[in-house]
Design a protein around this nucleic acid. Structure first.
Lengths: 244, 244
DNA sequence: CGCTAGCTTGATCTCACTCAATAGCAGTGG
DNA sequence: CCACTGCTATTGAGTGAGATCAAGCTAGCG
């Protein structure tokens, strides 16, 4: 099922009817290979994509050629649903790994919007969830140091992957280089490396060859001052991803 | 008119009918005094507020007691419209100055959502505009230095105030202390002071006693690498707020 | 086997923070 | 009218987290 992970384990899950209506709005699926830019900043868009498999990023290009991530997307995320109302984007959308996406023409979304206020509110909710994550990323950059930022990012990703069954709550696959993590946390690859060593030596977690293993979730959460409430997960899930 | 500045000079302005429908959804207006916290993080909310007069902030509290702004709101902003779909917020909402707001019970918004898909899409758009600003704030923290951050914030605020007629494109009133600016740009008040001196000595702009005067808009925009496209203003307005 | 991308470590530098002191200014009360 | 209080702005000196620069190292792959 294409929309399997959509809203999964959030405050409100989708009903079967809603799921069916949504799936009928999909025109086709598509694949992109790693590194490919899917939507370029400023280009008019008439479709939105739901990520089915792989990881995608949204990033802003700095004039000096560096990129800065503003969002990371996991399977089940409606990556650029906001394009439905914005019509052109203020950032790029790219594939981090090889990915598969489901394509929703905006005309289909318009039909949903005219026929199902409840489902529309849930789609709206999804775009607000992204905004909530943006806010936490601002907070992360503004008030955490390098170690805490990386720890916070790992906690967040663990919680999100756990919600879709892609983490067992402790270990998960994360196909990102240290430089990629740097683009999330606004650190150089060199410093990410030092931070990861520090986390490893503190027996909090190990990140090696695209594999994250959290050794002490409670300790990592404390270090990062991570509180998953902004992810709007259901209570039991939130508790387990912050070891409460 | 309460909704006078709503969507003003954005890609799509509101029609008279839409405006009337919206105004009918207002239950009452309310005032708050400076510093007052209007919505506390995590509290269930059943209303959303539109800012009519004054400035409001949305901020995240750090455990050490510091606050970090994630949004600044000017008159005409639908400050916590996102509460309509989120139901509880992941941050605080506060009054920066004495403010007047219009209150929209979520029940009224629900009626709009069931009766007017077009207006609903415009409201949705407004919440996405906030998200676009969040993204730019991430970018600002991630890739600009202290001077550029402050310059960028001043350019952004000038453009937003210009859109609602509260800036003449060069000068405007900004009732914020240097410490407040620090909470936006993630800098200490001491460093904000040095940065403002630098901008003044470079003849780019002067910030004194709540009054901002941009002396060289083109230069300030260049220093900040400010590009207003993320504000989704209409083209002529965007051009004038970046001196193109 | 050599190449390249990613990881690792060391040495040095710098931007913004911290700490500390002073000045200006509005409001308040004697 | 002036002393007192408290908030905001200003400036100086010293410090430190993370960047930069520079080298190796490792492993997968053609």
């Amino acid at each position: 099922m294409l929309t399997e992970n959509l809203l999964r384990n959030r405050t409100a899950d989708l009903s079967e009817a809603e799921r069916a209506l949504l799936e009928s709005a999909v025109s086709h699926t598509q694949t992109y290979s790693a590194e490919q830019v899917v939507v370029r900043q400023g280009t008019p868009v008439e479709i939105s994509t739901l990520l089915i498999k792989g990881l995608m990023t949204r990033h802003v290009d700095a004039p000096d050629g560096r990129r800065h991530l503003v969002a990371l997307h996991v399977p089940g995320d409606f990556v650029d649903l906001h394009a439905y109302a914005l019509k052109r984007l203020d950032h790029d959308v790219a594939a981090l790994t090889d990915v598969t996406v489901a394509v929703f023409p905006h005309a289909s979304l318009e039909k949903i919007q005219e026929s199902d206020a409840r489902l529309t509110r849930r789609l709206w909710f999804l775009t607000l969830l992204d905004a909530a994550m943006h806010r936490q990323w601002i907070y992360r950059l503004a008030s955490l140091n390098a170690t805490q930022r990386v720890a916070h990012f790992l906690c967040e990703t663990n919680a999100r992957l756990f919600a879709i069954g892609a983490s067992d709550g402790r270990t998960f696959s994360l196909p990102m280089t240290q430089a990629d993590i740097g683009e999330v946390c606004s650190l150089t690859n060199v410093h990410v490396n030092r931070v990861l060593r520090e986390l490893r030596e503190a027996q909090l977690c190990s990140v090696r060859a695209s594999r994250v293993e959290i050794l002490d979730l409670r300790g990592l959460v404390a270090k990062a001052m991570f509180d998953p409430q902004y992810l709007y997960l259901n209570p039991s899930l939130a508790a387990r991803s912050s070891a409460q």
